[in-house]
Write a protein that binds this DNA or RNA. Structure first.
Lengths: 126, 126
DNA sequence: CAGTATCCCCGAGGATACTG
DNA sequence: CAGTATCCTCGGGGATACTG
């Protein structure tokens, strides 16, 4: 996607544009910034969690979306899924090294949003 | 949303959960990570752009979504809209100070995604 | 407990036409 | 040029029921 700073000047003119529709970065960005992606990644950023913990902790997420989000993030190599052969079943989700690299960038972002959200939405109801 | 690192341990147990459904952070996060939010913000992060530049530069965005995204980001105080009273009309969009604070966190994130996207998607078609 | 399977709906979002 | 207005589609995503 060539978002590197030196290349961000690309927009003006009729040239191809700095954000081509079909590029790997857009795909990964969509996975990460999907409706529940960031929340799941952040939930796992501190410590591993079981399915049920995530289900309850990430308020509002449905089982379907939790499963789908986890599978996508696992497919991208951000999340590690570990099944324990016990009864009742126990499955733990944790971040991979790659996932930790990613959340290193997500955490400051969410921290800033968290710090500023109230003021940002202050005058409006929205 | 209490994403602050010290508080991220909240998930286990039956407690309220670290990601309550109704909190300002979730709203702002949704705005920023909306389908086109990050792309618009990054496009403006280097320099101001006119409507048409954004329309062409952010490949695949429709006029409706560009207008909607810009209005939301303007409403959140991330984007400044400046109309020039000339014919033909000219409107410039730029980041506010708050918008620049935000993109300071977005840029490293997208930089990392950009650097790793190909490898992340490597084995699959997806 | 940790999911899948199904059904279904609503609204995000695209296409097109039009306007100041 | 910089948008709005309108219509319409499609799939994201929720609810529920079920299973190993």
């Amino acid at each position: 996607m060539t978002v590197r700073n030196e290349q961000l000047q690309g927009i003006p003119g009729t040239t191809a544009g700095i954000f081509p529709a079909a590029c790997p970065s857009r795909t990964v960005l969509d996975h990460v910034t999907s409706k529940w992606g960031v929340l799941v990644l952040l939930a796992l950023s501190r410590e591993p969690h079981r399915w049920g913990e995530l289900r309850r902790g990430i308020e509002g997420i449905s089982e379907k979306m939790l499963a789908q989000t986890l599978r996508t993030l696992e497919g991208d190599g951000f999340v590690h899924r570990e099944v324990q052969a016990v009864i009742p079943p126990r499955v733990d989700y944790s971040l991979t090294a790659r996932g930790r690299e990613l959340t290193e960038h997500l955490l400051p972002l969410m921290g800033w949003i968290d710090d500023n959200a109230a003021e940002i939405l202050a005058p409006r109801v929205d």
